[in-house]
Amino acid sequence: MADLLVEQLSGFGLATIMARKGVSGMAIGMALGVEAPAQPAFCRGENNLALIGTGAGSWFAHTDMVSPAWHTALRDRLAELASVSDQSDGYMLIRLSGEDARTVLQRGAAIDFHPEVFAPGAAATTVIAHIGVVIWRRDDDARGRPKYEIATFRSYFDSFRRWLDHTAAAL
């Protein structure tokens, strides 16, 4: 019996942050009260806000519980520092957890998911089945099993889900 839990997430907020020319990740992190990682990583701060490194000078801002003013508040805090674009409806989020979650990911993405390389807090932007994905690893669950979250474009979600269902069926 495969140990895999697939959850389609809702109620989250997601926005892209792109630093203006010459603005450091440090300045962005200070403005938001959460570390803005210089490498592909998932950093969770206060106020249920996390930043995920998606490129040099670019991040995803993520919250589990979105409010109507979430993205405008983010934009106000980053005025003059970065461009903020709300993507809460542009991406779908799916969570994979359980002992077999890593196997499923490893069958889709050509990057190393070994725990020594892709530990909790790691993130990567890559492709699965030719579909662009951003993957980050949360803290393990209470039983020490890994927990990954994957963001993919809404318009590609059905195709991604098909890949996931076929791959999970083969476990």
């Binding site: 490498q39 592909p40 040099a56 990057i111 492709v127």
Partner: peptide, 11 residues
């Protein structure tokens, strides 16, 4: 890749 690390050339 200086940001992402080692990746397949197809990316």
């Amino acid at each position: 890749c200086p940001y992402c690390g080692e990746r397949d050339a197809q990316e």
